[in-house]
Design a protein around this nucleic acid. Structure first.
Lengths: 351, 351
DNA sequence: CTGAAAGCGCTAACAA
DNA sequence: TTGTTAGCGCTTTCAG
C-alpha cells in the first residue's frame, strides 16, 4: 500500500490497539502505558516512518498547532527580523506560522483575521500599523489569544510588545540638546499610525522637559514614512523655518529624504543641520554621512512577542503584558554641534 | 450554544440534510442542487455566520489549502519582497502560507520539510540556498509539488524560478569592458551556494567572450556573502593583483565591503577602481558612490514562483518549467572608466 | 435532486 | 494498564 502509515498500522505492527499506540506516542499523559509496550510502539512507528496526521489530530483536539502572523508590509525592513524571531520561537514550541501581508489595507486585514480564525489558528500575532482597527479591537477580550507587536491600538487591553521608542527618542533629543541645539524639528508620518503617535509624543515631551515651553516643538506630518515624504516635508519646512539646526525624522527613510533635500538646498550635514532617524535599518550606517538613529534588537522583539503569545496560549486569562524592549541611541556622523552662533538667518542660509 | 455553527446547524435551519447543505455551499459541483434549496441554505449559513471548518474539510478531502514556504534567512533583503509576492498570489488563489526559516541549516531544512509534509501542505516553495540538498532532491519526482525559487539544485528536475543572473552579470561585464576595463576581478561567496555558481559561471563566460582567453578571469571565493567577507577578500586580493581596475562582487553586501577596503587603502571609486554589486538592495543607490548593480523585480519573482506552483497543483505531471525573470543593469556612480593609461603599477598604487 | 450513511485519522472518554 | 467505542465536521459515495 502506498498511502502513508496511520496509527492503526503502527498499532497493528506493534500488536496493540490504536488507542494504546496513540497513548504510547503521546509523551506526557496521565494514563501512561507500560514501558515495554511504549518501546514496541515507538519501534513500529519508526520502522514504518509514521508521522501523525496533524489534520486529524486537530479535528479531534481542537488545537491546530498553528499561529497566524499578520504584517502590514513585509518589505518594511524592520519586519523581517521580527518575523524571524517569531517564527523561530514558535517553531521551537512546536507551532507553525501562517504568514499574511495586509498591504496596509483594512479590508485585507479583516479578511486575513477571519481566514485565520476559520483555519483554527490558536493565536495571532498582529503587526499591522494603524492606531485604530475595528478588526483588531474586536479581538480584545475574545477567545483568540492575540499579541500586538510594534503597534498599539487605542483603548485596547491586548498584550503588546514593542521597542521602547519613547526612551529612544528622548535619548536622541538629549543628545541634540547636549550638542547645543535649541531649534529642533520633528518630521514624521501619518498620524493614523501607532508608531507616529508614540514617537511624536516622546519628542514633544522631551522638548518640553529639556528646552522648556512647548512652542519650540515643531512637528510636521507627511503622507507616508518614505524617502519622498521626507524630502518633500523638508523642502516645504525649510521655507518656513530657517532657524532650525536639527531635524529628527520619524524613521530612517524620512531621514534619508531629509538629507537629500538639505543637500539639494546646498546645506551640509551635520555642519549646517543635524539629521537623525529611527530604526537603524540596514546600511544607514554606510551612508554619507552615516545616520544617527535609534536602534533596537529587532529579532529579540519578535522572540519576546512569541513568548508572550505562548504565555497567553497557556493561560489566556491573566492580565495582558505590555512590554517594551530597550532601544539604543546610535550616534553617527549625521549629528554634530549646531553652526557657531552668528545671526541666525545667515548661519542657516543656503550657500 | 456557544460553539460555532456547523454544517448540520445550517442544514437544520434550512430544513435540509447536511449532505445537501454541503453541496449547496460548494460552488462548482457536478451533482448540483435546486436553486431554491441553494438559496435557503446560503441564507441559513449567512444568518448563522457559518464558516466551514477547514480542518474537518482537509481531513475528508486530503487537501489542506496550505503551502509551505521555506527560506534560508528572511533577513536577507532579497527575500521579503519575494515572499510577499508569493503570499499575495497564493492568498488570491485561496491558499495560506506556512513560513519557515531554516537559518541556512541543513538539518533544520530537513525538519521543516518533514513538518510541512506532515502538516499536509499541498505544495512547497523552497528558497534555501545550497546547490545540493538531500532533502530537496528527495522531493524531485515525489508527489509533493515543489518549486525552487532563486536557487537551483544540481541535477534536479524540479520547477524553478529565478532571476536571469547570467544575463545581468554579462551586461555588467559588457558595461565595464565598454568603459575600457580589461583587468576585472570577481569576488564572491561560498561555492556551495547555487547563486554563487550561476553568477560566477556567467562572469567567466563573459570575460572569455569579451576579453578573450580565460586567464584574465580572476575569481576569489569568500566564506559568506557579507560586508566583512567582501572587505577581507578585497584586502587580500589587492595584495596580489594591483593591476585590477574593476571589481565585480557576488552581491551588494560584498561590494560594500569591497568599497570600504578600497577606501581604507586610499583608493577612490570609481576613479581608481570601479566596483559593482548584484541584487540592488534597498539604499545601495544612496551610498557614496551609489552602487552599480544588477536588479530584478523581486516581488514579481515571487509572484511567478507562486504561479508556477499553482500550475503544478493543478497538474503535477507536466514537465517542470524552469523560468528566468529578466534582470536589469543599474548603472550608478561606482563604475567609470579605468584610470588613464600610465605604467600599471603606478596607476593603481594607493595614494 | 436529495437523504442516508460511511469514514478521513486521530484521541478521549469509558470499560474491562 | 489496555481495549472499546464514539465522534471531531465535513464530503462523497450510494440509494432512493
Amino acid at each position: 500500500l502506498a498511502r502513508r502509515p496511520t496509527i492503526s498500522d503502527v498499532a497493528a505492527r506493534a500488536g496493540v490497539h490504536p488507542g494504546t499506540a496513540s497513548r504510547a506516542l503521546n509523551p506526557a499523559l496521565p494514563g501512561r502505558v507500560t514501558e515495554t509496550t511504549a518501546r514496541k510502539v515507538r519501534e513500529a512507528a519508526r520502522e514504518l516512518g509514521y508521522l501523525p496526521d496533524p489534520t486529524a489530530r486537530s479535528l479531534r483536539t481542537r488545537r491546530s498547532g498553528v499561529v497566524g502572523v499578520v504584517v502590514p508590509d513585509l518589505t518594511n525592513p524592520v519586519l523581517p527580523p521580527i518575523v524571524r524571531g517569531i517564527e523561530e520561537t514558535l517553531w521551537d514550541a512546536g507551532l507553525a506560522c501562517l504568514l499574511a501581508d495586509t498591504d496596509n489595507d483594512v479590508d485585507r486585514e479583516a479578511a486575513v483575521v477571519a481566514e485565520f480564525q476559520a483555519r483554527r489558528c490558536e493565536g495571532l500575532i498582529v503587526a499591522t500599523a494603524t492606531r485604530t482597527s475595528a478588526t483588531v479591537s474586536g479581538l480584545d477580550g475574545g477567545d483568540l489569544p492575540t499579541v500586538l507587536v510594534t503597534r498599539d491600538i487605542d483603548g485596547s487591553s491586548l498584550p503588546f510588545v514593542a521597542a521602547d521608542d519613547a526612551s529612544g527618542v528622548r535619548a536622541l533629543v538629549q543628545h541634540l540638546v547636549d550638542l547645543g541645539h535649541v531649534r529642533i524639528a520633528y518630521l514624521t508620518g501619518p498620524a493614523s499610525l501607532s508608531t507616529t503617535l508614540t514617537r511624536e509624543t516622546a519628542f514633544r515631551n522631551a522638548i518640553a522637559d529639556l528646552l522648556g515651553p512647548d512652542d519650540q516643538a515643531v512637528v510636521r506630518h507627511g503622507a507616508s514614512f518614505t524617502i519622498d515624504a521626507g524630502r518633500r516635508l523638508t523642502q516645504q519646512f525649510r521655507g518656513e523655518r530657517r532657524a532650525t539646526t536639527a531635524i529628527v525624522a520619524g524613521n530612517d527613510m524620512m531621514a534619508i529624504g531629509c538629507l537629500e533635500a538639505l543637500t539639494a538646498a546646498g546645506l551640509r550635514c551635520p555642519q549646517d543641520v543635524s539629521v537623525a532617524g529611527h530604526n537603524d535599518m540596514p546600511l544607514v550606517g554606510k551612508l554619507q554621512p552615516p545616520l544617527t538613529t535609534v536602534a533596537f534588537a529587532q529579532q529579540s522583539l519578535g522572540v519576546r512577542a512569541a513568548q508572550v503569545l505562548l504565555g497567553r496560549l497557556a493561560d489566556n486569562g491573566h492580565p495582558a503584558e505590555r512590554e517594551l524592549v530597550p532601544t539604543e541611541l546610535v550616534v553617527r556622523g549625521s549629528t554634530g554641534p549646531p553652526p557657531t552662533p552668528r545671526p541666525v538667518t545667515a548661519a542657516t542660509r543656503p550657500a
